[in-house]
Amino acid sequence: MAIDTDASDGPESVLSDVSERGDEGPQASESGSDAPSAESVTFEWDGVRAGFLTCLPVALGVGGYGIAFGVLANQVGLSVAEAALMSATVLAGASQIVAVELWADPLPVAAILVTVFAINLRYSLMGAALQPWFRHLRSSRVYGSLFFMADENWALTMRELTSGSGRGAFLLGSGIAMWLFWVGSTIVGALAGETVGDPTQYGFDFILAAVFVALAAELWEGRSSLVPWLVALAVSVVAATLVPGRWYILLGGLAAASVEVIRYDG
């Protein structure tokens, strides 16, 4: 729906959602069946390639963090293979770094798993935000792509899809770039040990914020964005000071969505 309405702004987009629903009637795509009418969202090599290339410079910067993670993992006693395995299968930087900080001799397994869950729960919201485009894709493609979702390539993918290109494979391609650099840099960091300095001295710690600022510039839809964004900003900033971990992302997103649900019809 949002793909067709990107020229509209403000409350009209809600209206066009409604009218579009009326036009199409019952949708066959909800079960994920690959109907030939799968509008303009594709899943092709072209999208994988575009995602990979667009994400390369970002992935290179994220590699700075992978090195930091590898160093940290090495210091708490993980072998290179174990650190690489974690990066290859978990692929969620913040949760990995925190998990490794919790690493101790009798492994606090429950604490580690609960923390990982809490930090990564925001991905549920991010994934759900892709549904307007991913509804046209087969389930296996959706879930396979989502394995490779991290903050940065989610942001790049949202940018790509809201621009209306309809490249459904963009998340997969950008995710593969992230995965390669994340795993590779983890190995480098774990091998190098303490010899590598602090990533903040190269500005790598700012990449996530920079990607998200760039995305915010593109997601701004004018006045209709103002209220949800202010709600998200206020709730997340307050929650960040009151609640540990990364719950603030989830709380900010949910608060904005709730307010929009209440305002709807108004």
Binding site: T162, A209, A216, V235, A257, V261
Partner: peptide
Amino acid sequence: GFSVLPGAIVIAVLG
């Protein structure tokens, strides 16, 4: 509500 999620998440990360 879902349609405002992308921007809201971005702001909640950034803020």
